[in-house]
Computed example of a mutant assay.
Amino acid sequence: MLVTIGHVDEKNLTGSLAGLRVLDFSTTIAGPHCTRMLADMGAEVIKIESAEGETMRSRAPVRSGCSTAFGQLNAGKKSVVLDLKSPAGLEAIKKLIVGTDILVENFRPGVMQRLRLGYDDLEGLNRRLIYCSISGYGQTGPSATLPAYAPVIHAASGYDMAHLAYQPGRSRPDHCGIYHADVVTGTYAFGAIASALYQRERTGRGQHIDCSMLESMLTLTLNEIQWSQFEVAPAQRPMFSPVATSDGYVMIAIASEKSFQTLMNVIGRPDWVIHPLFARYSDRRANWAALMDGVEVWSKSLTTAQCLAALNDAGVPSSAYRTVAEALDDPQLAHRGALAEVEDAAGTFRVLNPPFRMSAAKVAAGPRAAALGEHTKEVLAEVGLSKT
């Protein structure tokens, strides 16, 4: 019998990865995003930090010495301080590895090997270890050792120039402030780890996962990958661009024949459904500027709210342009319990839960972001060591 979430006592659910232990050597965003997802799914994630603390601990906003940027990426994890260059630190890691299921690191290729903590160094201690390396270009190859952060990968992958092609009249690439490459790569790493766990159930063996930010970022340019190989006539106007209203803009996504036909009825031009310039997709694309100019004759006569009311009533995909703050106040997010409250030493703040729900497993951010080294004594005591 199918059991829905409505018939399950959510308070008694456990995470689907409960019982797994993760050693998290990662910093900044891509690796911590991956390991926070593992923590959200119930795994015990032990974040290994230096005495100075992970670099994100100083990122704004900082309240009373606590960064919510750090807390957002590391909620639900334990914090252990170790000197990885010391014999005592190395000994501690090797003892912990014996009972560890997953290791995640995003140092530049070669760093973990120099610390004698590479996959080849550790697999002999634990054949079931799943070891995930996240790097800019992959672990091998001519670019492997190049330093890379998300903005560099955006440029290197062609993403920035692809995005620029949708901004008519501009030749300078956009500034970078939203780090797609980090989030996408961290999510791919999470999926690869889940796959490796499934494979381990059948083989009894772990493996090394090599996750490339460059390749991850390229997956966002699906159309452009094909257009780079085969000639496609560009549209006169980007197909998905702001549509002006009397007091702002809306996004209207005409992505199917049904949405096109419905929109034409909404704007009072049902005759355009069979018009020779617009009836077929290929003709419509070639005359996209004329089509959208006609849509804006209608939209400019209405406010944004009036446009959206008409479009939503008809089932045309559309939205106002909102700030993140406005989006976070959406009643839909409240309905789904999309936001969790996390506590640190300075108080509380909100973070997103994973964007999926499971009918028989708990999916939620951990309630606390650990202080630096908060769990060092506890974790080391488990393997018979004192705090180093």
Rank of each mutant, 00 (worst) to 15 (best):
L311T: 07
T219N: 01
A150G: 09
L90G: 10
V80P: 01
V45W: 00
A365T: 00
R280C: 05
I225G: 14
Y159W: 07
L2E: 13
S67A: 11
G138L: 10
I134P: 04
A92D: 00
L117I: 00
N223S: 10
L115V: 09
R357Y: 02
L302C: 05
Q207L: 04
A346C: 03
A309L: 08
A314Y: 04
G65I: 08
L146K: 07
L311M: 12
G169C: 03
G71F: 12
H33P: 00
G294P: 04
A235T: 12
L372T: 05
F260M: 12
A305H: 09
A365L: 00
A60I: 08
N353K: 02
A148C: 03
G158V: 13
W272L: 15
R202Q: 11
E215G: 02
G268K: 03
I153F: 09
D83M: 13
R128A: 15
A369D: 02
V250P: 02
D271Q: 12
E123D: 09
G19E: 11
F349A: 08
M239R: 14
I134A: 01
V45M: 08
L20I: 10
S64I: 12
L20Q: 11
G294W: 08
G206M: 04
R368D: 01
V111S: 01
V81K: 06
S135E: 00
A338H: 12
T388Y: 13
F190L: 14
R108D: 04
A69I: 06
L385Y: 04
L385M: 13
Q72W: 10
G177E: 07
V324S: 10
A325N: 12
D121A: 08
K387D: 15
D293G: 09
L2K: 11
P367Q: 12
V243N: 10
M264H: 03
A290W: 05
N223D: 07
V351E: 13
L90A: 14
L115F: 06
T303D: 04
H7I: 01
P355L: 13
L103W: 01
G186A: 09
R116K: 14
I209L: 15
G65F: 12
P142F: 11
E374P: 05
P276V: 14
R368L: 06
V81W: 05
Y159K: 06
T221Y: 00
V379I: 15
S359I: 14
D160W: 00
S143W: 12
R237D: 05
S256N: 06
K78V: 08
A30Q: 01
R269C: 04
C307Q: 00
T262W: 05
Q167A: 05
G204K: 00
E44C: 09
R170D: 06
S143T: 04
M217H: 04
S282K: 15
S16G: 00
